[in-house]
Design a protein around this nucleic acid. Structure first.
Lengths: 325, 325
DNA sequence: TTGAAAGCGATACCAG
DNA sequence: CTGGTATCGCTTTCAA
């Protein structure tokens, strides 16, 4: 690869002049052409590594998330990517596949590798771990979909509790009394909040809480599947299941079908996200829909503000959700 | 952030000694402790940018793909990520959302940004564009799932033609004679090959090809949906549809259900990938399953070999697929 | 305007 | 072993 030095030599000017040419400084008109031609001839491109080292900016932002496959994240980050790109930033995604060790590793890696900012969907990190990792690095972080309580960083979330309460309330109004919940682990704030919404709805309608109907665990197909089977094996199985994650919902639905149960006649299921997929089913599965585009855009906007120097207090935004019936 | 210089000063040794300490050189035992302690005290971490500039290696590889949401890619790259990590590489994903301009931009960006190698799922780039972008950059590229014909690079693909032929043959053996195909654009090699497999099956069974039954277009839900509606509006609609992509399949199935058609009684549908999701349906949709893990592992292995200096001829590997019925 | 030179943070050669 | 120094490629003063 040709360097700026080669270009300078070939064009018969100094390195600084080429640099100015490259970065929009003032260069005498008659020197423009030789430089341009040298660049083309040598197929020169600036080395972003060297540039980053010098200017301490890479114009790239990292996105760290627990799972690639979730359609929810895909939509969210497509939206943030667009906003970021319009402002001249490239986004680089890293996935930690819901693994705690990997989550630490990648966070640490991204913080150090030179991205200007970070959009982060946390899962298992404690506030202490996060503080330690981010200490002395001034890389702004915006959390999305989840947040680590006690951490001072911008966060874009949705109204998990309220939306869940609404969803469960609807099931109750349709006559259900034994409603199960299958959701993520309590270490994930979002899962905890959705559980809280479920409990609130029960309370609202004076329905006794039954611990045997609540399953909190891995955000996976397997967990949803297994939980459903266990639910059905108790003496008095639920008549409805509120499933608060895409993969889990797939597992729950599969298990139900395997058992020969009709949805919703034999057991009603209410999901979260995955609107497209749930619409595929007959009849369509009702779901809570989170405003994915807006989440992504907001997160990107927050990050860009920080990158441009905004240093105000951290913002925690809650976006409202819709029920798709 | 503290630099190696600060550490050297605090520990009372030279910069070079600290560097040796960091990189496993020989350092007199009594100097070990002061250095270690200075590092801890200053919370020092090496600056990967500076290191990259010097050693011309970043120990990171880029992954460039057209879509995040496809469960297929997620599985593939989870597998390659694992292999890469075990060899000390971090992977950074970029998604171009099936946009031609973005595909060029991101490819160019990744090639320049300092990743040591690239795993790339191409979609719209011509061989010329690719050559031009990779010219003078010695970043090894391994293509996955698709390849750009005429480009000299490793590629890990599956037996698209054969698998498609098998799938369509099965439909024929079940008695279908009017079988539609809805798949990706002809610019995507994979889509073209699957179409070729479809044609081969027709020929094998002496079924006349009917152009009105073949839809090639966007790899999207919308395209699948619309194509199905158009198919059903012709005078003699197909009795079966072979859909060669996840999103398209979702669109096709939704459209069928919306029309009140029963699957497979009224119209039989055969999909590709998305095993989990297709298993959710009642009855499960038959699909062609590609060995995702193996694709990912193979691609990573190829890339690592290149990174370690292997300079042999480019390899094009075809992995066999299974039918999940 | 222009260019010489310092410096970003780290590595590695080489003399001691 | 150790440490001074050149170097990686680029940006940015600063003096001319």
């Amino acid at each position: 690869m040709a360097t700026i030095k080669d270009v300078a030599q070939l064009a018969g000017v100094s390195i600084s002049t080429v640099s100015k040419y490259l970065n929009g400084g003032h260069v005498r008109p008659e020197k423009l052409e030789p430089i341009r031609s040298a660049i083309v001839q040598l197929d020169y491109r600036v080395n972003p590594i060297a540039r980053s080292l010098k200017i301490r900016r890479s114009h790239s932002v990292g996105i760290l998330l627990p799972s690639l496959a979730a359609p929810f994240f895909s939509s969210v980050f497509m939206a943030s990517d667009k906003v970021l790109r319009e402002q001249g930033y490239h986004s680089m995604i890293s996935c930690y596949y819901a693994d705690h060790g990997l989550e630490r590793d990648y966070l640490s890696y991204l913080l150090g590798v030179g991205v200007d900012g970070l959009i982060y969907v946390p899962e298992n990190l404690t506030a202490e771990e996060f503080q330690e990792l981010t200490l002395h690095r001034d890389v702004p972080v915006v959390m999305v979909d989840r947040m680590i309580p006690g951490v001072d960083a911008d966060a874009v979330l949705t109204e998990n509790k309220k939306s869940s309460c609404n969803a469960v309330s609807r099931l109750i109004e349709k006559g259900h009394r034994r409603i199960a919940l299958v959701g993520g682990p309590n270490s994930v704030l979002t899962a905890k909040e959705r559980l809280a919404g479920y409990l609130q709805a029960l309370e609202l309608y004076n329905i006794l809480y039954d611990g045997a109907l609540v399953f909190s665990g891995e955000l996976s197909f397997a967990f949803g599947h297994q939980s459903f089977l266990e639910l059905m094996n108790t003496g008095t199985p639920p008549t409805a299941v509120f499933s608060t994650n895409h993969d889990i919902t797939m597992g729950v639905v599969t298990a139900a079908r395997e058992q020969g149960l009709r949805i919703p006649e034999d057991v009603e299921i209410f999901g979260y996200d995955s609107v497209n997929i749930c619409a595929v089913m007959t009849p369509p599965l009702p779901v809570v829909y989170q405003p994915e585009q807006e989440i992504g855009r907001t997160a990107a906007a927050y990050l860009i503000e920080r990158l441009e120097g905004y240093a105000g207090a951290s913002r925690k935004t809650r976006l409202p959700c819709e029920m798709i019936l």
